[in-house]
């Protein structure tokens, strides 16, 4: 029983990280109907920036905030420079551009920082403060995730800019007619997604260690989470993230063993896509032929 509880809590901790990254995916999907294959590498790159800042002697939390800002700028720049020219291109071209982005970020990071694994500090104390079931990093990661989610919710729900961004995503033509600069809203969306992804990267790095390929598995779980919750539903993505985290941990610990954990994501992704493509909370999409 204790073991079960422990696994569930650990699952919730990683689930929060998946939820953040899934949320980043959903934000970009809502705005552009594209799934960003480079989301994980963007997060990885941001985490390396944080590592540089901390190693340069900056205390953790200022470095954390500065990284979030830098990731935001990086996201905006990527949208403006790289994604913009293929906005209306066929799906294949867009997928290829995302893959190119993934490859470039991955190799540039490897070039600058080398491929050796680095450890990444956790801002939370080493001794457990939440009782014996959960390490304080796990607890802290859940806390950070919830704060990020709350901030995003408040931003989109209660600020004029958030409203404008939602409008631009929902109905670009009408939004443009009432004077919203849709292009910039998309860029802001990318920036926010990159920032959220950066937070996820910094939270997962103390667990999986820092290396240029660290986000491959995490991205896969985030895909699964976003799909389970419904790829166009932010709240669904969060739910999906926690669900996938717990499921992955429980199955890994008790049923199939740790080696096949990634296969859980594969089965979930294909299963959801084939059986119920809209996920638990997504809109059912009807296309007119």
């Amino acid at each position: 029983m204790q073991e079960l509880l422990h696994q569930v809590l650990a699952g919730l901790a990683t689930g929060g990280i998946y939820a953040s990254l899934a949320l980043a995916l959903v934000m970009i999907y809502q705005a552009t109907h594209l799934v960003n294959f480079a989301q994980g590498e963007m997060a990885m790159f941001a985490t390396y920036l944080a590592w540089s800042l901390i190693n340069a002697g900056m205390p953790y939390w200022p470095a954390f905030l500065l990284t979030v800002v830098l990731a935001f700028v990086l996201g905006v720049v990527i949208e403006r420079v790289i994604i913009r020219p293929v906005e209306n291109a066929p799906v294949l071209a867009v997928v290829v551009v995302f893959i190119a982005l993934l490859v470039i970020l991955n190799s540039v990071t490897g070039w600058i920082y080398s491929y050796t694994i680095k450890s990444f500090p956790s801002p939370f104390p080493a001794e457990p403060i939440f009782g014996q079931y959960v390490t304080s990093h796990q607890g802290g990661a859940i806390g950070v995730t919830l704060v990020v989610l709350l901030l995003l919710f408040l931003f989109f729900r209660y600020t004029p800019l958030g409203l404008a961004m939602r409008a631009a995503a929902q109905n670009p033509d009408s939004a443009r007619l009432v004077g919203i600069r849709v292009g910039w809203m998309l860029a802001l969306g990318w920036g926010l997604a990159a920032a959220v992804g950066g937070v996820a990267g910094m939270m997962v790095a103390p667990i999986v260690f820092l290396d240029p390929n660290m986000m491959g598995g995490v991205l896969l779980y985030a895909f699964a989470a976003a799909l389970v919750g419904g790829i166009d539903n932010p709240a669904g993505a969060v739910f999906g993230g926690f669900l996938v985290g717990v499921l992955e941990n429980l199955l890994g610990a008790f049923v199939i063993g740790n080696e096949l954990k990634l296969a859980v994501a594969l089965v979930l992704i294909i299963g959801v896509l084939v059986v119920k493509p809209s996920g638990f909370f997504g809109k059912v999409l009807v296309t007119r032929v």
Binding site: E259, L260, L262, A263, L266, I269, I270, V274
Partner: peptide, 27 residues
């Protein structure tokens, strides 16, 4: 199953297959 998937989603499913395959081979 891929029949039911178009464009982006097929890319996603195949991406998942490729990422998880090394883990399966190590099983």
């Amino acid at each position: 199953p891929a029949l039911r998937l178009e464009g982006l989603y097929l890319a996603l499913a195949t991406f998942a297959l490729a990422v998880s395959l090394p883990a399966l081979l190590k099983y």
